[in-house]
């Protein structure tokens, strides 16, 4: 019964996503939604390593930038076809994640986060300063739009919307597979505590590294999409404030839940879009909200709901059917 409800909910979301272009008033709305999807995809990755595995990676936006710049540099400076460059975005980020992971994941808790904060800065500064590779602060201009695949062309906002939506759905589906499997349980055991997980025979390094690489693969993929969608890149996308944004999406929706990043990543940008005056000062409101959430609703909307439902289901008989 419960599973059926969940399935129904997901199908409804899917249908909503599919018909959204027909409900949206204009192309601007489509662009906002597509951008939100791209960040949701990256946030799914952050949620895997932070929400499910308990390692807070503050360089996540840096890895997204690595994916984006992979596409930008290859297509603009080396005339590599878009899709070939795009396919490389995730693996390049994951490969970099491998090397950074084997060093950083030996550190525990706060040390890992501070280390990755520094990694994020290094990525940002390298992108900003290494002009011969990244065009520095000028940025990369004129990234080609995704080239047509057979009859499918990606030259309209609507087509691009569906492209991004497609990757989000695939990303969500794969994430669902991961977190509901034994592998996901392994990650969660690590989140609960290194010592206990290790005493249960879980190889910490191998599993943390896997979670980290998967997580930055998502970031790289999202970056690749971003490059093809926005078609302009500057060092700013590597900034740590984007990691903070994603943290907020994750926390508002529910950290360590599948739906959480989706919910947070869609509602927060729409709220800021609607309240234009908020744009510049959004953290005047969201900063305190973040603090209040952490103190009073640490598991977010979805996490609290799931716990409430599970508690209800565990009750002996009767009252659970309201």
């Amino acid at each position: 019964m419960m599973r059926l409800n969940a399935k129904l909910g997901w199908i409804m979301l899917l249908v909503l996503g599919l018909v959204f272009p027909f409900l949206a008033g204009n192309d601007y709305h489509l662009t906002v939604m597509s951008t939100a999807y791209i960040y949701v995809l990256a946030t799914l990755g952050l949620n895997l390593v932070t929400g499910y595995t308990g390692q807070y990676n503050l360089a996540h936006a840096g890895f997204m930038a690595v994916g984006a710049y992979t596409v930008g540099i290859l297509t603009v400076d080396y005339q590599v076809p878009f899709w070939i460059a795009f396919v490389l975005a995730g693996p390049v980020a994951a490969l970099l994640g491998f090397f950074i992971g084997i060093v950083s994941l030996r550190l525990k808790g706060h040390y890992f986060s501070i280390f990755t904060l520094c990694v994020g800065y290094i990525l940002f500064l390298v992108i900003e300063k290494w002009e011969s590779l990244t065009h520095g602060t000028v940025g990369i201009i004129g990234i080609p739009a995704p080239s047509p695949i057979g009859p499918l062309t990606f030259d309209s906002p609507r087509a691009l919307y569906y492209l991004v939506f497609f990757f989000l759905v695939v990303g969500l589906w794969v994430m669902h597979r991961i977190v509901s499997s034994l592998l996901g349980r392994t990650f969660m055991a690590i989140r609960n505590g290194d010592d206990l997980a290790e005493s249960l025979g879980i190889n910490l390094m191998r599993n943390k590294l896997l979670a980290f690489m998967l997580s930055v693969f998502y970031a790289g993929l999202a970056g690749g999409l971003y490059a093809g969608f926005v078609r302009f890149l500057g060092p700013g996308i590597a900034g740590v404030e984007h990691t903070f944004d994603m943290t907020m999406y994750m926390l508002v929706g529910g950290i360590g839940t599948l739906l959480g990043p989706v919910l947070g990543g869609l509602t927060v940008p729409w709220i800021t879009q609607t309240l234009q005056w908020l744009q510049e000062y959004r953290f005047l409101v969201f900063g305190p909200i973040l603090v209040l959430l952490v103190i009073f609703v640490p598991h977010g909307i979805v996490g609290s709901f799931i716990a409430w439902r599970a508690r209800k289901a565990a009750q002996p008989h009767g009252s659970g059917h309201a």
């Binding site: 499997s181 034994l182 349980r185 392994t186 996490g303 565990a314």
Partner: peptide, 20 residues
């Protein structure tokens, strides 16, 4: 936030081989 049973399933993980 999870059930007792859910907490226990990972206990036998070390005897399994499934990967990514």
């Amino acid at each position: 936030q999870a059930s007792v049973l859910d907490n226990l399933i990972v206990g036998h993980r070390l005897r399994t081989k499934s990967g990514l």
